[in-house]
Write a protein that binds this DNA or RNA. Structure first.
Lengths: 221, 221
DNA sequence: ATTATATTCTATCAATCTTTAGATCGTTTT
DNA sequence: AAAACGATCTAAAGATTGATAGAATATAAT
């Protein structure tokens, strides 16, 4: 085989990964799967697409070996092939944030209330959490928390925050997080908490971002 | 604007990066630009495509803000927008290598002579080079060497190796490298050198891979 | 077995992308 | 100013992809 043909083959293979992440919906599915494994119907609902379309996109991701499946009774659960896929999601999103002005603007529009954002140092935050001087609040669905969460984090899904206010201290800073920079759950939780008299801020990191930084994540294996 | 609309916008922006790297030729252009800035005609020749097509692909890369241009007389030089694009190239290639069996096979077919490949530790190699116990040979074109190269490396473009054999010692191991795992120049140089009685091996790293590992690179700024 | 549920496969249309060719634009040289 | 050259733009053909609907498949419950 000629050198040129082999080269074409090599780049074509890498482009398969590129094609897999060239669709907004597939990226959203990857981010959702970075939180925890999920069945098709749930992925479809969370990404706001039909089950059929979700299935088609997941098939592409599977052909690119980015996701794997597991059947449990009637349901088929999808999960990322391994940690490097989540790392890749973080890296392509970061690259996009760095290079696409429109993305920065859209992100800024989403979190106009910049004061909510904690620019805190990650390791310092970890230390404060360890000493119990702040409360780290995971507002994602319980199952995603179970699949892995920041150290010392307390699980309180967004929908439950209002009813479970009593569990939160008024005298300590509360730092909320959710799925990552594109997720609005932490933002909503913080808005609610501050209205109720708590000292709440949020960080943009999700578990994938946290882990991609080489920081520890609590998970049941 | 509704939450769903903003989300769609965010993922669409990231997908623009995905689309930019969803084409084999664009990936090849990125790899070429990771070596050094280059004019359109040269990129077209090295990627074995027409100037028109190269121009069209480069336009897409520019719209995704992955590359920038500079005019010098009649020529337009393209360069990567910044180092993170080269890092991204390394990361998507690694992901592809890890997940696509066909890619592994194609790569294996390319370097059937596994004995040529040095599985050496990078820092150890750096130390040996510093002490002058090995010769690190950069077989890429001179201009790419000038734009940045491994520490202590000697520039000897593949086409010149045969004539410049006298410059190389017979009693020291020679470690050749070129543009990265997809590049065949180092492989060819090693084959030639071993036939001439030298102790030559190669590493798959190029400058981008080296730098992505956080290792130092010599460059004129 | 039959039915219900979850998922995937197949077919289709519209939209998008790749590639090529011809025309155009900008810069340098004569 | 004209010619030469490099690069880009525009237009068009063919190929590929995204999204939707209907048919088919696999498992669980009846």
């Amino acid at each position: 085989m000629a050198e040129r043909e082999i080269k074409d083959l090599l780049y074509a293979q890498v482009a398969r990964i590129g094609k897999a992440v060239a669709s907004p919906k597939r990226l959203e599915l990857i981010e959702l799967l970075a939180q925890a494994e999920k069945p098709v119907d749930q992925l479809a609902a969370e990404a706001a697409i039909s089950v059929k379309l979700a299935s088609a996109h997941l098939k592409e991701l599977r052909q690119a070996r980015l996701v794997e499946t597991r059947r449990e009774g009637k349901r088929v659960f999808y999960r990322l092939a391994d940690r490097s896929v989540a790392d890749f999601w973080v890296s392509i999103r970061s690259l996009a944030e760095a290079h696409l002005l429109e993305l920065k603007n859209a992100l800024a529009r989403m979190s106009e209330d910049a004061a909510q954002l904690t620019p805190i140092d990650r390791s310092q935050m970890l230390e404060l959490a360890r000493r119990g001087e702040i409360v780290v609040l995971d507002v994602r669905p319980k199952l995603e928390f179970s699949a892995g969460h920041l150290p010392y984090a307390l699980s309180m899904p967004l929908a439950e925050v209002r009813k479970r206010l009593a569990e939160l201290p008024h005298d300590k800073p509360i730092v909320a997080y959710c799925r990552g920079p594109f997720c609005v759950m932490a933002k909503e939780a913080v808005t609610l908490l501050n209205r109720e008299g708590y000292r709440a801020t949020r960080i943009e990191d999700g578990v994938a971002e946290w882990r991609a930084q080489g920081l520890p994540v609590e998970e049941v294996l």
